[in-house]
Amino acid sequence: MIDAIKLRILQRDSIIQDVSTASLPKLFRGLPVIEDKPCPDGCKKCAEVCPTNAIKTEPLSIDLGLCLFCPLCEEVCPEKIIHYTNDFNLAVDKREKLIITKETKTISPEKASEKIRKYFGRSLKLRQISAGGCNGCELELNALSNVNFDMGRFGIEFVASPRHADGIVITGPLTKNMANATQICYDAVPNPKIIILFGACAISGGIFKNSEETERKFLEQNKIDLYIPGCPPHPLTFINGLLDWLDKK
């Protein structure tokens, strides 16, 4: 018993006291910004180097749904026009909001409908489906429940059964072999229910978008409530996105 108390004292306080004001190291690749400067004539280096073709030129834009937050575009840009910030607030409620242009300074989701906030505002139980996720996203989702992020303090938790859930969180590019199970799991969640896409693979297929082994019809047939971009997204991106969406900050 004394050993247990000693160990508890050793743990000290939670590392992250307030999730909304927490800051990440400078090196962290969060929201990219595009400086309002002209590109050198004909330069398409960033678009050429991008592994998922997330970058369009003339005018320059980045699709965060495809972006893997790798350092390549920032590295090749001769004028330092594209560069990452450590802003982890990346969650949005509509796919088109993930397209970053020169005008974009910050991105955030619109508040959820009154009905959703009434139903889920104080308690949101989620069922996670890994449909081809590499375990990167899964580890970050698991980290949300650890003592540092402690998502449970906001009434948001992952549950074992879809029947106990208010919505699903999908990771991975939706493989053919998981198509059926994903549908069955979603059907088992009682109405009203939400769908959250976590990570570039779920949002766009990511690096696997040209794979013949994916089957993404499920996403076309259902309304997506929240997009969490990243590869994998930081736990703070998820937690702050949900808190913004549910208007709980």
């Binding site: 180097v49 081809g132 693979c201 690096i207 696997f208 794979s211």
Partner: peptide, 25 residues
């Protein structure tokens, strides 16, 4: 097999930048 994404096939046609990211995934 539920997670099968066809990485070995994708590797053959990927460019060097994509290959490294595929390995990371």
């Amino acid at each position: 097999g539920y997670q099968h994404r066809g990485i070995e096939s994708l590797m053959l046609n990927a460019n060097p930048n994509q290959r490294i990211i595929l390995s990371e995934s």
